[in-house]
Design a binder for these strands. Structure first.
Lengths: 120, 120
DNA sequence: GCAATTACATACCTGGGAGTAAGTATGTCT
DNA sequence: AGACATACTTACTCCCAGGTATGTAATTGC
């Protein structure tokens, strides 16, 4: 934990990287992000299909979260340019590299939910 | 993973289970929960050590999150009953069953943070 | 002409997650 | 007697994620 030769990673760099990681983690920790990624891990989905598959999400939050996931390159949006509107969302390559982790997290949660929260 | 003899699982049960899973997922998605679990995955830690290891967390949020994780049986608290106070936190068996997933999620985030959020 | 469909956009509001700052208990050390 | 250390509480505040409700564009079918 010392030594800083010519070209070095400064403490500020570490802080920034850490900050980025935190920001990204915060995005994934948003209420619906993990659920959306898990839903898309099974294949492309139309907006309405996603809404049905994930129960209880409002259209606003669905679209908002999808947009954010799109910005960080986890989700892709394809507009068929039809009427009535037809849009399909899918995971990018990067999204696919993440989804197995999300899915296993989700499975863990489902396996343990009852033991952990017996009441209600 | 089936068989539902006389006693059956109703739609309401599924909804409740789903609700529980969502609640549990929400707990994990709290800002500091994943970071705490990751920190504890390396071994037991005193309160102050945790605070140092996880940068930027306030004492209040640290304790509050630890309490919640304790309630769901992911974290254990051991009080040495010394003065000045000495308390150690560690993962429970259940916590250890979860931590590998958290750690891999964290590693993924750290690996991709720069590519995803180049600015800032 | 008008209802229906679909994927949004927008306005408004509230709860609670989260930060800051200060206080508390209880001993040891000088 | 007073400073210091440690692990918390508690009070106060702010902000925004997230919910609800409604509006919109562009077609097809009746």
């Amino acid at each position: 934990m010392s030594e800083f030769p010519s070209t070095t990673i400064t403490a500020a760099d570490v802080m920034k990287a850490d900050c980025r990681a935190r920001t990204l983690l915060a995005l994934l920790a948003e209420k619906w992000a993990l659920l959306i990624i898990e839903a898309l891990s099974k294949g492309p989905r139309r907006t309405s299909a996603l809404k049905r598959q994930i129960g209880g999400i409002s259209e606003k939050m669905l679209v908002q979260t999808l947009r954010r996931l799109e910005k960080v390159g986890l989700v892709e949006r394809y507009d068929f340019r039809e009427v009535p509107p037809r849009v399909e969302y899918s995971l990018t390559e990067r999204g696919h590299s993440l989804s197995p982790i999300i899915v296993s997290l989700d499975r863990w949660v489902e396996r343990h939910a009852f033991d952990i929260l017996p009441e209600a």
